[in-house]
Simulated scan of single mutants.
Amino acid sequence: MHEMSIALAVVGQVEEAAERAGDVTAVRSVRLQVGELAGVVPDALSFCFELACAGTVLAGAELVTEAVPGRARCAPCAHEWLVGMPPLLSCPRCGAGTTDLLAGRELQIVSVHWEDGPAHAATREPIPEER
């Protein structure tokens, strides 16, 4: 279950940001964008996140996931469409198979809410993919 490694990476990044901030005593929520093509099961991620937070400054924090639909653009005709699941990667307009995936693979922390202060935007760096 790679959701556990993702949850551990999120917790680690938020802990590092909390340490750098210096005055954080608790994290209340973490907002995460999850692309529909990222191969992540949101319910499994939420379960793993709760386990990964135990004993950390994130204990009891809420994980809020925002689904990002997959979008593609046809290279020859520039038509854009939602790829859906299972993904439709050939152009529905002209049938070409040369497409650029524009969105849907995101897996990034969008924001973190500290208990002792206002919401702080986290770095918009993607979480390293498991290889």
Score class of each variant (00 low, 15 high):
48 C>P: 07
92 P>W: 01
98 T>F: 00
14 V>C: 12
85 M>R: 08
126 P>F: 00
26 A>P: 09
23 D>M: 05
117 G>K: 04
55 G>K: 07
26 A>T: 09
50 E>W: 01
123 T>P: 10
84 G>R: 06
31 R>A: 12
31 R>S: 13
128 P>S: 09
54 A>E: 15
115 E>F: 02
103 A>P: 03
21 A>L: 13
53 C>M: 02
7 A>N: 11
68 V>W: 03
128 P>K: 05
15 E>D: 10
73 R>T: 12
69 P>H: 08
99 T>A: 13
55 G>W: 03
23 D>Y: 00
3 E>S: 12
117 G>S: 13
128 P>R: 12
40 V>L: 06
101 L>V: 12
55 G>N: 11
49 F>K: 03
43 D>T: 11
4 M>T: 11
65 T>D: 11
96 A>V: 05
123 T>W: 00
73 R>W: 01
94 C>L: 09
71 R>Q: 15
105 R>D: 09
54 A>V: 14
83 V>R: 04
102 L>F: 01
114 W>Q: 07
90 S>W: 01
128 P>T: 05
62 E>K: 03
8 L>T: 13
20 R>Y: 05
89 L>V: 04
4 M>L: 15
80 E>W: 01
23 D>V: 09
47 F>W: 08
131 R>N: 10
83 V>G: 07
47 F>P: 08
107 L>Q: 02
86 P>G: 09
10 V>L: 14
128 P>G: 05
